[in-house]
Design a protein around this nucleic acid. Structure first.
Lengths: 122, 122
DNA sequence: TGCCGTAGTTCGTAACTTATGAACTTAAGA
DNA sequence: TCTTAAGTTCATAAGTTACGAACTACGGCA
């Protein structure tokens, strides 16, 4: 098992961040990590937004987030402790993560609203 | 040749925007369109950042930007007039595009600096 | 110690995406 | 009408992603 690698904050690229966060499962993971503020294991996310994610797929998603520089992962015993690197990223790209997270919130709020409209009209 | 389709601003998704802008060629095109503020044809971008982009590839990039809701394209005679939809997007996702464009500026500034360092140390 | 269970990783493959050349469409001008 | 310029489409090769099966690594407990 190869050791976990994290890019130095100076090597983090906007392209990699945008690519990582352009996947609905990955933003959901990242948002949860960033919001909670504390370390979470991978298996916390085996079910996310009412969807089951296979373990191997989840492992790849974490790798993408880690290699994009968005999260920090550390093995602790049999588990992994994942935390968001938002402070570092904020320093390098001010406002970026906040704007993306905010846009996601806007979008989920609208989707929830649309879903309610569909339900109530039946 | 199928007609050009543009999503309504309400159907524009954050995922699609991030995906579209996670490609270096596409952000470069988008940045140029947004900065210049006026319509530009596709072929303006056949060479971008000292790189030649094949016409067919460029056409696909424009389609991705258009379908993500980032740009508006209109055929005018033999050409196409492309403009950024930044005002609409700003209204729906405030600060998003600005933060991304700014992060890109930060990154290119750093890369230029690193390149200068490499040149001067020889 | 050795065995078991849990947490994650790796690998192989099938499904999907992307890049690009070649051939096409469309419009303008001679 | 012929030609040329601007884009598009299509086929295909190359690259990426998803996921099951088999694996590793660690901790607990007989």
């Amino acid at each position: 098992m190869r050791p976990l690698t994290h890019p130095s904050i100076d090597d983090v690229s906007v392209e990699a961040i945008l690519h990582a966060l352009s996947d609905p499962v990955r933003v959901a993971i990242y948002a949860e990590l960033a919001d909670s503020g504390c370390a979470q294991t991978c298996s916390t996310f085996l079910t996310i937004k009412d969807r089951d994610i296979p373990k191997s797929t989840l492992s790849q998603h974490f790798r993408v987030l880690r290699e994009a520089g968005l999260i920090h992962s550390e093995r602790q015993g049999v588990e992994m402790r994942n935390t968001s690197r938002c402070a570092e990223i904020e320093q390098r790209f001010p406002g970026l993560i906040g704007a993306i997270m905010n846009a996601h919130k806007v979008q989920s709020a609208e989707r929830a609203k649309a879903a309610r409209r569909r339900t109530s009209s039946r």
